[in-house]
């Protein structure tokens, strides 16, 4: 049994190491933007953050936001936001599409944390579909946590709230 177990591990290692060079992680934001707007994306706009908006974003993130503005893309009543936030150690980059102040799609474009990869999966991101922002800047639908990925779930939920807030502010 011992030899079989060791051999199985060795086979798995070898087969996976051979695919080391074939790594194709994460979707580039530009690719996502192109796909959303059928390869004819509008020119990026920027929302400049006034003091109130900056404070509201800081309240959601629970830390200050240091930028002056946030870029977005807008076409035919649809806005697209590319935002990132640290989960535990590394920034998670997500793309969010909003129509009529509701999220129509949320996609994790880059996940760099060592744990919590489950947040990239559709079963998690689909929870955000048709979610809107309440007056207290909380989402109007609870987002189910994933065991072992609490910080990543939290970061993505915050970004969804920020995107909806920004969408309301333009």
């Amino acid at each position: 049994m011992k030899k079989t177990a060791y051999l199985s591990i060795l086979v798995l290692l070898v087969t996976n190491i051979t695919s080391y060079a074939a790594r194709n992680a994460n979707q580039q934001p530009a690719t996502f933007i192109n796909a959303v707007f059928n390869h004819h994306p509008p020119k990026a706009k920027a929302i400049w953050l006034n003091k109130t908006l900056k404070q509201q974003i800081a309240d959601i993130l629970q830390h200050p936001y240091h930028g002056f503005r946030i870029h977005y893309w807008q076409q035919q009543g649809k806005t697209l936001w590319i935002l990132d936030e640290i989960g535990k150690e590394k920034p998670i980059t997500i793309g969010i599409i909003i129509q009529r102040h509701k999220i129509t799609r949320l996609r994790v474009l880059a996940f760099r944390e060592s744990r919590g990869w489950e947040v990239r999966q559709r079963f998690f991101t689909s929870q955000f579909n048709q979610v809107a922002l309440k007056k207290d800047h909380q989402l109007d639908t609870p987002i189910d946590n994933i065991s072992g990925a609490t910080l990543s779930v939290r970061a993505i939920t915050k970004l969804a709230r920020v995107a909806l807030l920004l969408d309301q502010s333009i």
Partner: peptide, 11 residues
């Protein structure tokens, strides 16, 4: 040390 072997595999 953690190596990303591909988009869904790490060592």
């Amino acid at each position: 040390v953690q190596f990303d072997l591909n988009n869904h595999t790490r060592l």
